[in-house]
Computed example of a mutant assay.
Amino acid sequence: MLHLRHFVGRSTLKVLFLASAAALAVGGTVFVATQAQAEPALVVQAAPFVSDRMSVEVIGSGPDVILIPGLASSREVWRPLATRLAATHRVHLVQLAGFAGEPWSHGDGAFAEPAVAELARYVAETGLEKPAVIGHSMGALLGLRLAQTHPEAVGRLMSVDSLPFFSALYGPTATAETARPFAEQARAGLIAETDPATKRSRGLATAAGMARNEAVRAEIADWTVTSDNHAVASAMADVMTTDARPGLAAMTIPVTALYATDADGGPPPAMAQALWQREYASLPGVTLIRVDGSRHFIMADQPERFGELVDEFLR
């Protein structure tokens, strides 16, 4: 994906974009297949839900957990976690349209709010009662907006390396309006890039800031190539201009926000901590948790720590 760092100055801010990257929350993990083969066979079913905005795979039984991947990601990014949770939970793996080979039929139309509406419809039509929602990057922003606009649809929310307003990375005075020209610039750049080899090359280059593991970076490039340009462009523009901060103060559900820090080439711990504290300051009772030694894909870079935090969140 086209990274927001192309539209900001060469500064330490660029490092945080590499880590937070709503613009490039792409990728899966190559360890998925190996782990899936090692686990007992699970009954996998498609949810009884028809949508041109997303599909949902359901595994396991128990309390409901919805997993939402980030921009241009495959649902496979969650596979190791989902396989483990399926022993005690009913897990709903969302795949957003236009990403990682999923069909897209909406041209350059809006992405984020229609996806939120479909998530709410999914919860209502399948009869879920206050499910836990875990989202990564843009997926967490969608979960946050779902909780704000349909509070009956979310019991608790875990945000994985995501901000309520990603363009706050431009600085504390940024607004949706000041970010809009950059969002349109990003949209145009993505739509124009149609050569698969160029997309893969850029995906690999950007992935270096997204994950520490080189094999995982290759997966990020794969999802980049197979995602629809128009879908990603619309999603990126929406993410850059969606400011969920005004709705934080009225939220009552428990929210846990994980954020990545990596002294070796990733976001500096002190800077990341200050940013997350500032941007979530108005959310009552939010639990902020720093995960060291990780870049944007916390679930891949620190899988054991991530699993522990998810278990605590679900308890």
Rank of each mutant, 00 (worst) to 15 (best):
R121Y: 05
L42T: 07
W223G: 01
Y259L: 14
P269M: 13
V310I: 04
F165D: 00
I298F: 05
V255I: 15
E184M: 15
R145G: 01
S167K: 07
A117H: 08
R202I: 14
M240H: 04
D108Y: 06
A179C: 09
W104Y: 05
D52I: 12
Y280H: 04
A174R: 09
E76D: 13
M271D: 14
P114T: 05
T242K: 04
R315G: 13
L314T: 09
M299Y: 04
L93Y: 09
M251L: 15
G109N: 05
L190G: 04
G293H: 01
L258Q: 13
V291R: 00
A33P: 02
P267R: 15
I59S: 13
G62S: 10
A72W: 00
E312W: 08
P269N: 12
V43H: 09
Y280A: 03
V43A: 13
E125C: 07
L85Q: 04
G247Q: 02
T173P: 05
I66M: 08
G139H: 02
A110L: 01
V133H: 10
A110W: 02
M158F: 01
H150C: 00
T126Y: 11
R187H: 15
V255T: 12
K14E: 03
W276I: 02
G9R: 12
V94K: 14
P151E: 02
L275W: 10
A22I: 02
Q37M: 10
R245P: 00
V225S: 10
T206N: 10
R53N: 07
A174W: 08
D108S: 14
Q45N: 10
D292N: 10
Y259E: 12
R145Q: 03
W78R: 05
P267K: 14
R217F: 08
Y170S: 08
A87Q: 13
S11A: 07
M251C: 10
G109M: 06
A211N: 15
L275A: 10
A168F: 03
S234W: 03
P164L: 01
S51T: 12
H136P: 01
L71V: 08
Y280P: 01
T12W: 09
L2G: 00
T224E: 00
R217W: 05
